[in-house]
Computed example of a mutant assay.
Amino acid sequence: MPFKSQFFVFEGIDGSGKTTVSKKVSEILSTKSISNLWHREPTDSIHGQKIREFLQGKIKLTPDEQLKLFLLDREFSVNETILPTLKSDTCLVQDRYYFSTAAYQGRDEEHAADILYMNEDKGFPEPNRVYFLDLSPEEALERRNTRGGNKEAFDDEKEQTRIYQNYLAILPESTIFVDATADLEEVVNFCVEDILLSLSLKT
């Protein structure tokens, strides 16, 4: 059945499971013959690579330098992946978008809103659906500690609390809040069902 391509974004603080969930959602959509591409930001562009080096503690960046890199990487993402994909009748399932930049780089809720408007003013395409995998900073910290690995720039619980509060302030009213404490299969199936509704493939 033909359908118009749509743009689905997954957001959440570190440890909420958005990367795992978004990848599984993309895989299930493919099994249902729904053409889609899984994509993430930061990208693998030169700007995205610098961002990842910063997140991993390999280089230092001022807040202004961080924001500049995120905007440059997003322009690359939009022009090289997002717009071409949507124009090719292929859905996009994306791990992080400009809501992440606003939440993470915003000093407080007001500054986060300013960063959001900065992205919107650049004319970046709006997603059809935003899924926020809702998990408290305390629970997210537990998950990150359990899975191990190297600490990243925003791993501190105080930072994650700031980010969580910024998210709540800037996410659009239409955002679908998903209980990230639920069973993984349940979370994935919920998102898939909602995407099928959005594509008018399920009533």
Rank of each mutant, 00 (worst) to 15 (best):
P2V: 04
Q6N: 12
F8S: 05
V9C: 05
E11V: 10
G12T: 04
I13K: 01
T20H: 03
S22E: 05
K23T: 09
K24R: 11
E27Y: 15
I28M: 09
K32T: 06
K32H: 13
S33L: 12
I34M: 06
I34N: 01
S35G: 14
S35F: 13
S35H: 15
L37G: 03
L37A: 06
H39R: 08
R40D: 05
E41L: 07
I46R: 11
H47L: 02
K50E: 08
I51D: 04
F54D: 02
K58C: 13
I59L: 05
I59K: 06
K60L: 13
L61A: 05
T62F: 04
P63V: 00
K68A: 12
K68M: 10
F70A: 00
L71P: 04
E75T: 05
E75W: 06
E75L: 03
E80F: 08
E80I: 04
I82N: 12
I82P: 12
P84R: 00
P84V: 00
P84T: 00
T85P: 14
L86F: 07
S88W: 00
T90E: 13
T90A: 14
C91N: 08
C91Q: 04
Q94R: 03
D95H: 01
Y98M: 03
F99I: 09
T101W: 11
T101G: 14
E110G: 07
E110A: 13
E110Y: 12
H111R: 01
D114A: 13
D114V: 12
Y117N: 14
N119Y: 04
E120P: 00
K122A: 05
K122R: 15
G123P: 00
F124D: 01
N128K: 05
N128W: 04
V130R: 03
L135H: 09
S136T: 09
E138S: 12
A140V: 08
R144A: 14
R144K: 15
N145E: 15
N145R: 15
T146K: 15
T146L: 15
G149R: 05
N150L: 15
K151T: 10
E152N: 02
F154C: 01
D156S: 11
E157N: 07
K158E: 15
Q160F: 02
R162I: 01
I163Q: 02
Q165H: 13
Y167K: 04
Y167G: 03
L168R: 15
A169R: 15
A169P: 01
I170A: 10
L171R: 13
T175D: 05
I176V: 12
V178K: 06
D179P: 07
A180S: 02
T181W: 04
V187I: 11
V187Q: 06
V188H: 10
V188R: 08
N189G: 09
F190T: 09
V192F: 05
D194S: 12
L196I: 12
L197F: 13
S198L: 07
L199C: 11
L201S: 05
T203N: 14
